[in-house]
Each structure stands twice: as C-alpha cells, then as structure tokens.
Design a protein around this nucleic acid. Sequence first.
DNA 1: ATGAAGATCGCG
DNA 2: GCGATCTTCATC
Length: 219
Amino acid sequence: MNTNFNEIVDATWLSRPSPTIALELLGCTVVRHLPNGEQIRGVIVETEAYTEGDPACHAYRKRTPRNTVMFGPAGMSYVYLIYGMYHCLNIVTDEDGIASAVLIRALELSSIPEFLQQDLNFPVKSDRHLKKPLKKDKFSRLAAGPGKLCRVLKIDRTLTDLPLHPDGPLWLEHRTPTFQQSVNSGKIQFVQTTRIGITQGTDLPWRWYIADCPAVSQC
DNA sequence: ATGAAGATCGCG
DNA sequence: GCGATCTTCATC
C-alpha cells in the first residue's frame, strides 16, 4: 500500500531548521482551496530559508506585529506585502521560539486555474487580489516568482498566521513517490545558491531550486 | 508624526 | 535601470 502519496506535510515535519526544510520542500505541493471550492495546486521548485542570526530575516531585529508568527511553532503561514503591491508566502519552520521561515519563490502549476483558462489576462477590477493585471505569459512562467505565485493562488495577508491544514484554505503535500524516485536516480537535481533580492546576508547559500526547471524565477 | 526602505515585477 | 505603490518600523 502506498501511504506516501499525497501525504499532508504536518507541523512536526516542519519543526526543523529552515535551511533543511527549504531543500526538502522542493517537489512538495502547495494546495490552495478557494472559497468557491476551486483548488489550485503547484509543485514547489524554488525556495529560500530565513532564520535566527540572519540579517536578511524579517525577525532579525526584534519581534514586531508583522513577524511575530515566525517566532511561533512550525506549520503556520506567514504572508506579507512587499513593495506595496506583491505578496510573499512563507512556511514557518523550526521549534517554537526560533524565528524562521521558508519563502516559497516559485511553483510549477499542476493545471491551468479555471479563471486563467477563460483569459490569461486577469479581470483587474473584479479581483481585489490583483493590484496589476497579469500579462499573457507562458504557462510555465505564471508562478515563477514569489509575487507571481501569490497572484495566481490568490494569496494575500488575510492568509497569514494560519495553520497549514486541509481544513483551511492552504496546505502542503509531500513529494510523490515518482518525484522521489527521480531524485534518487539523479534525473531530478537540486541547486543550492545564495539568496536573491536582498541587501544583507547575501553570502548565505540558502536558496534552492530544481535544476532545468522553466518555472524557476530568474532563468 | 514622518520618512526611508523593502525577501518584486515588468517594461524599455 | 526604473517606476509603481503602500506597509512597516525606526526615529524624531
């Protein structure tokens, strides 16, 4: 019996250091359950880790209203607004009291969301999640970037500080056996590099992505 | 109160 | 390279 398929990622599994989780989340699936019942799924292909003692971490200085969820137990969502117009999705990691999280930087969408099938241009005024219209784009690049994936999955700050569980609007599923076999055989390879888009902590090699994946940001 | 900076993105 | 756009946080 295959008990590993579609296994839910739980808080215990996430209660380890963020660099470890950032690597192991590659190949896992983000599932977004919309209020209308629609489900959007995407495989994680790029991540970054942030943690204690890391000058690029939002929790580096002190605990504030925005970053407080990072100080709590693993398995929670941390969503913030960046540059006044984009949202970023993070997964809170490590033990309670250790401020850390993994930024989800890119997804390979499993299917074209219904609202994108209608028209690859978003209905700007009717969708409050979209500050700007999404231009027509190659399907594989629709969620290639932390801001872009939140647009497609309709993730905003109302989804921060939520437990990642199938009862809610957002959760994670483990790698499929097929994916893991490809990793074991070397067919799928992971690349570790320094993080991007930051001005401090640029020397820490805490960015990971799947090699030769068109959905990874910054090709 | 005030202002500067920011884990982005797409255009030119 | 730059502008859009606005919250957050440090400092005044």
